[in-house]
Design a protein around this nucleic acid. Structure first.
Lengths: 190, 190
DNA sequence: CGTGGAGTTGAATACGATCAACACCGGTGG
DNA sequence: CCACCGGTGTTGATCGTATTCAACTCCACG
C-alpha cells in the first residue's frame, strides 16, 4: 500500500516525529474530475497520492490547459512554491481517476524536510526533470518527445487520455495522433 | 559587495555556523570563457557569483547548446541534482564575463540548507521559474517569450550576446533577430 | 438506441529552421 | 595606421513541422 508514512519508514526518522506526522496527517478521497486546487486559491497544499492519479496544470490566456505533471500512486503533487511561501496558487490540481490522497500542509512539509534528506532529494530530482523537459522542448521533435515519454512513463501512458499526453508534450491532440500514426506505420514495415 | 555570507547575514544563523562556512568557503576568479563544469564531470559544485556572469547549458546530439540559466552577481548556479547526489554532471557551466565565484561543495550546501529556510526557498523558486518557462515554451509565441525575457531579466539583456538569449529562448539567432526587427518596426509606427 | 467526447485524417495555413549572402564592428598584425 | 579577419547580427528565399479548421469514426454512457 502506498502511503507517506511507509515511504519514510526506511529513513532515519525519530519515532516521535513519525507519531507526530501520523497524528496530523489527513487522508481524503477525491473522485475523478474533482478539483483540489485552482489558480488564485490561498489554501495551497501538497498531496501524496495513495491510489488513483492526479495532475497539475496551468491555463493560459487562450483557455488552453498545459499539464505540468501527472501523479499516480506513490507520487507527491503540489504547487510547491505556493505551498511553501503561502502565495496564491498558480496551478490547478485535479483527479483524473478516483483517487485517495494524504494532505500535507506547509507545517507538515517543514517537518518532512527537516527530518530526512528524502524531501530535498525529491526537490532536486524535480528540478532535474523540469530541466530535461525544457531541453526536450527546445531540441527534440514531437516524435522524439513522445517516444521519450513512452519510455519514461510507460505506466502513465496506459491510464491517461491521449489529449492529456498531448497537453503534457505541448502540442495539439491532432499532432500527437498523426505522430502515432507514423510510428505504427514504420513499425509495421518489417 | 555580493557574497554568500552577506546573503545569509540577515538570516537567523548561529555565529558558529557562519564561522564554519567562512572557514570552508573558497573564492575563485574565473576568466571569461573558462569552463567550470563539463558533462560527465564528477566534481560537480555549486557557485555563488560575486561578480561577472556565468551560464549553465546542455549540448544535444546535434552539438547545439541550450542555455538553462544565466547567473549574474548575487545568483547561485549549479547542476543541483548532480551536486547533491554526486552523480556525473549533465550540464556545462562557464563564465561569459570575467567573474569571481564562491565555491560550495555538497557539504557546504547541506550546512546552508540546514541552517536557514533561504536555501529551500531558492529551490522552490527555481522550480517555479522552470515551470513558468515550460508553460511559456508550450503556449507563447517567440515574440511573447522574448518580451517576457526583456521584462524579467532586463539587466541580463544588456550584458549577454543575442545568440545566447536565442539559445535560452529555444530558437535560432536568425529567428530572434527577425522578431527584434518586427518589434522595432511596430514601435516606430507612432 | 442516441449523444457527446475522444481520436483520426485531410487541406490550408503559420511559424520557425535552414541555408546563404551581406553589413558591421573589434581586434591583430603587418 | 590601415588591411584583414572572425565573430555577431541582419535579411531574404525556401522548406518542414505543427496549428487550425473541418469532417468523420468509434465507443462509453446515459
Amino acid at each position: 500500500m502506498h502511503s507517506f508514512l511507509s515511504l519514510i519508514a526506511e529513513e532515519d526518522v525519530p519515532q516521535e516525529t513519525i507519531d507526530d506526522l501520523k497524528r496530523k496527517m489527513v487522508t481524503r478521497k477525491v473522485p475523478k474530475g474533482h478539483i483540489l486546487l485552482r489558480k488564485g486559491d490561498k489554501n495551497s497544499k501538497a498531496y501524496f497520492v495513495k491510489s488513483g492519479c492526479l495532475r497539475s496544470y496551468a491555463i493560459d490566456e487562450k483557455d488552453k490547459e498545459h499539464i505540468i505533471m501527472f501523479a499516480p500512486e506513490g507520487w507527491f503533487i503540489s504547487d510547491i512554491d505556493t505551498v511553501a511561501n503561502r502565495n496564491s496558487a498558480q496551478l490547478y490540481i485535479d483527479a483524473i481517476e478516483d483517487s485517495e490522497v494524504e494532505i500535507l500542509d506547509s507545517e507538515l512539509i517543514n517537518v518532512f524536510v527537516a527530518s530526512t534528506p528524502l524531501a530535498l532529494q525529491k526537490l532536486n530530482n524535480r528540478i532535474a526533470v523540469l530541466q530535461k523537459r525544457i531541453i526536450m522542448l527546445m531540441s527534440a521533435t514531437l516524435q522524439d518527445r513522445y517516444i521519450d515519454f513512452l519510455e519514461t512513463y510507460p505506466e502513465i501512458v496506459q491510464r491517461v487520455p491521449q489529449k492529456m499526453i498531448a497537453s503534457y508534450l505541448g502540442v495539439t491532440p491532432e499532432a500527437l495522433s498523426k505522430v502515432r500514426g507514423e510510428l505504427l506505420k514504420t513499425k509495421d514495415e518489417h
